[in-house]
Design a protein around this nucleic acid. Structure first.
Lengths: 343, 343
DNA sequence: CCTTAGCACTCTCATCTTGAGAGTGCTAAT
DNA sequence: ATTAGCACTCTCAAGATGAGAGTGCTAAGG
């Protein structure tokens, strides 16, 4: 699918204009608006070729041209080139993270907020979780009664808490010694290894062990933890969602865990940490996202803990800026994961 | 503001019809549709009186009547009567909670999901947090390096985690003994009491103490913890939000923490646990919510830990069902808080 | 052979007109 | 007090119309 230099220029201009104005543009307007030194008739010919090639489209016989999904893909892959955030923007973002302290929850919210704000789209961030969970520390805390609170810390810094109902009340002392014993026994073990320890323990320890394994397995699930979202209302401001039904479907996708699960598992696997993937117009797979594009990134330390972050916007989004932002925030979050694990 | 019996009947019918059809209704249609034994002319007269009284309104000279905000308020307070969920619905909801185990995060998500689904609106649930935080337990866990993870458990079952950066590395053993000492010293104390302990400790303990106090104070803030949302896309399906700009503003309200903070602090204080409050059309205070109503409830155990839950929908929402649902789910969550604390 | 001026043609969109339908308020009769 | 009857008002959907934007094609020029 090779096209000439002049056609590339025209395609880029059409896309750039469409991203800004959300309206098809014709040959004459294009020449006038961007001061081209060729005539509109020439542009018309080139546009006809680009339409033939599947990069442009006419909504109706006598409107201008607008980019097709294929056109956007070509643009993002071949024409756009690497962009980077303005140093000033980077400083501002870094500063905000610096002020946020060391609370993971806080970082997640901040990341979602920054992504949403910078891209004027809806953002999504998943908490970092280990690709393979390993035991680090457990704590058992008695509440009033037979309920025990288990706090489980995994390598990668993830914390999971769960209630455990005992058959009969147990003192905090017994709980503490049990926890201490388990901390020693299970240190650094994987879920599978812990399972193999079963059978050689008394009832209380056995119960706790089962719960530990359960939580460790949940933790490895792609969408086990919390999902942080922001800027959902941004997408409603875009003119392509003037039709509410379209907006509703796009939002619904972002809201439902089952859908996100699907989306993330299918794309995450092919994305490396630090890499960014762009899904344009649902890529033929997701009907509900036909009017949307998604920029997904991954952060963290492979083998230790990773998370996903992304932005959803109209197809007509500003890819350069969004991709740079996702990449930059992903790098910052990766640093966080390193901090938690290595000080 | 007293109105006759027949007027009450007509007002109730208009509201009931408007909730169902989202369209103004005229005298003749009302008589036909509900098989009234009085003539349309009589209904016209009564409607004129209700309009005079401020309960009904005509969008334009020759449309039917629709309820005003004042009309809804009168309806909710005087006309509606107590409603309750169908036993079958209750069983279904209880069953779902029963299956969800004992994980607070899970309960919150489930509550939001059920509220959204039952009311066909957007729901919101805040995690339970103490009205006055008291120290219960602390745990210090060394990560690789000088970073220490502090896990703080408060009365009411709330757990807060925070990173602490030390000047120099400290072994897990030292951390454990420090934690043990603090657990003894601070047991059951309030933030204020812990502050007064300062000054008589070594550097490490002092650092941890400061962090504890900070977290305890955050915990008492109305919106300290996570906010769980669901069903945002539901409101977009309502015909009153065909105008996207309206929908966008309503969603934005639900999204921004600052706004929620405001909303909750102003209304929570006047709501008892188990009580339900209804805000209709922004109540003159919230311009962005002019097209919306909010049903807010509170759950938990006063003095121990409480949380808020609510539903946002169009003014034209089914108040009876929504209120019953909020009340029922609030009761279930209250049981959860009791469970956590009393086993 | 590539480029471009000129032109006839097409299609949308905003604006206007028009008539049916729904609803109202008033008056007079029951 | 209630209601039938009626003249009147206003909205809304369905055509009608014309300006504007854009296209493709042809033929002329470098």
């Amino acid at each position: 699918m090779d096209i000439g230099e002049r056609q590339k220029l025209i395609l880029a201009l059409v896309i750039r204009d469409y991203i800004e104005n959300a309206q098809p543009i014709g040959s004459k307007t294009l020449v006038d608006r961007y001061g081209l030194t060729i005539s509109s008739a020439t542009v018309r010919n080139e546009m006809a070729a680009l339409t033939e090639a599947g990069f442009l489209r006419q909504p109706h016989t006598s409107a201008g041209r607008e980019p097709t999904e294929e056109g956007y893909r070509y643009f993002v892959r071949q024409l756009m080139g690497q962009t980077d955030l303005a140093p000033q923007t980077k400083r501002m973002i870094t500063h905000q993270f610096y002020q946020a302290g060391h609370d993971v929850e806080h970082w997640m919210r901040l990341a979602a907020s920054i992504l949403a704000h910078q891209s004027q789209g809806a953002s999504l961030v998943t908490a970092p979780h280990p690709e393979e969970a390993r035991f680090k520390h457990i704590e058992l805390i008695s509440t009033l009664g037979r309920q025990v609170l288990m706090v489980l810390v995994l390598t990668g810094g993830e914390i999971r808490q769960q209630m455990l109902a005992l058959a009969e009340p147990v003192s905090q002392e017994v709980l503490s010694t049990t926890a201490a014993r388990l901390n020693q026994t299970c240190q650094g073990l994987s879920a599978a290894a812990i399972v193999s320890l079963a059978g050689q323990m008394e009832a209380l320890e056995q119960d706790v062990l089962n719960l530990i394994v359960e939580e460790m397995e949940l933790s490895v699930a792609v969408l086990g933890g919390e999902v942080y979202r922001d800027g959902l209302s941004n997408v409603l401001a875009e003119p392509e969602f003037a039709e509410v039904e379209l907006a509703r479907r796009a939002l619904k996708v972002f809201e439902e865990r089952t859908f996100l699960q699907d989306l993330l598992t299918r794309t995450i696997l092919t994305t490396n940490v630090g890499g960014v993937q762009v899904l344009i117009g649902g890529e033929g797979t997701w009907e509900e996202l036909r009017e949307c594009s998604i920029v997904l990134g991954r952060y963290g330390v492979p083998g230790l803990a990773t998370g996903t972050l992304g932005v959803l916007g109209p197809i007509r989004m500003s890819y350069g800026h969004t991709i740079s932002t996702v990449r930059f925030v992903a790098d910052l979050l990766s640093d966080l994961v390193v901090d938690i694990n290595l000080g």
